[in-house]
């Protein structure tokens, strides 16, 4: 057969660049430039609203301000509480429910689909739903409580309850995500390992802790990591559900960031706070990722 000649107008490399160019431009404008300007701005006293006032270099003062500020510290404490409680509740619920879904029962697929639904909604919508359901006078939650003879709870007006209100809403929305990943992890475990364990006389609990959990650990850790990062920067749910209130009781760090950046327009300070948040998240992720790689190396060694 005769070899067909394709006109060699461009080298392979040129074609490569040609296709990469739009993506690179996009990344430069949407990621690299904002990120660099974020770092830059974090060292200046500067506001986008007062562009006429020249930015003043103040070194690490923006950082020092947040790191020594009591108010910010309380935001971190609240965020930490929320993240810890919400993520661990979601994790245990998710893994547990996923384990229950391992058995076949009637209507399993329908129930499974329904359980996954909250995850597909927008956080703003979820926040608004729950805002109405948590209403003290005519909310569904208090109505249900009254049915079992419990007194009405001021869900969104009391700082302690409002923490739980946000945790409940977040859990309702994001447990399905853990369920989904846990189920994927579980179904990846070969059936023969369970059969071997059955023959070896392992009880249900022994199997769960010695086969299911360790073998699905890598995926579960990824689920945990994603939830951790996500809930750490959770903003929209709070925005719609509590608006940070009552007072500032449910203001997370990211909520404070939003206020600093887009209500007070302290651009320099907001940049510094954004950097702090970023560093924390990167730090958290790297712990998990390191654990994950060590897990992989161990088993293939």
């Amino acid at each position: 057969m005769q070899e067909r000649k394709i006109p060699r107008m461009f080298s392979d490399r040129a074609v490569c660049y040609f296709f990469l160019f739009p993506t690179l431009v996009l990344l430069l404008f949407l990621l690299v430039y904002p990120f660099l300007s974020l770092i830059y701005n974090s060292f200046f006293r500067y506001s986008v609203l007062r562009a006429a006032v020249p930015a003043k270099f103040i070194g690490f003062n923006n950082y020092l301000f947040f790191l020594t500020d009591d108010y910010t510290w309380r935001r971190f404490v609240f965020t930490g509480k929320f993240v810890l409680l919400a993520v661990s509740i979601q994790f245990f619920l998710g893994v547990g429910i996923a384990y229950l879904f391992q058995t076949k029962f009637k209507g399993r697929d329908v129930i499974f689909t329904m359980i996954l639904m909250p995850m597909m909604l927008s956080p703003i919508v979820v926040g608004l739903f729950w805002k109405y359901m948590f209403n003290t006078e005519w909310g569904l939650v208090n109505y249900l409580l009254s049915l079992v003879g419990l007194p009405a709870v001021d869900w969104l007006g009391n700082p302690t309850y409002s923490l739980w209100a946000t945790i409940i809403a977040d859990t309702w929305m994001w447990t399905p995500f853990t369920i989904l990943l846990a189920m994927a992890a579980f179904s990846g475990i070969p059936k023969s390992l369970y059969e071997a364990a059955d023959v070896d006389g392992a009880s249900g609990a022994f199997k769960f802790f010695n086969v299911t959990l360790p073998l699905s650990a890598p995926v579960l850790i990824i689920a945990l990591l994603l939830r951790l990062i996500d809930s750490f920067k959770q903003f929209d749910l709070f925005y719609a559900l509590t608006g940070g209130g009552p007072g500032d009781a449910t203001q997370t760090v990211s909520f404070q960031l939003y206020k600093t950046a887009f209500q007070y327009f302290y651009t320099g300070e907001a940049s510094a706070l954004g950097m702090i948040l970023l560093i924390i998240i990167i730090g958290l992720s790297s712990i998990f990722i390191r654990y994950l790689t060590s897990l992989g190396e161990k088993q293939s060694a």
């Binding site: 023969s192 390992l193 071997a196 023959v199 070896d200 006389g201 073998l215 650990a217």
Partner: peptide, 26 residues
């Protein structure tokens, strides 16, 4: 009863010692 499976069915997350003692530990 004890069974040996076609593709071994050994636990990848355990060392050989732990695999062998699995039935005893269970």
């Amino acid at each position: 009863v004890a069974m040996v499976f076609q593709f071994f069915a050994l636990y990848p997350h355990l060392k050989a010692r732990k695999i062998i003692t699995f039935p005893l530990r269970a």
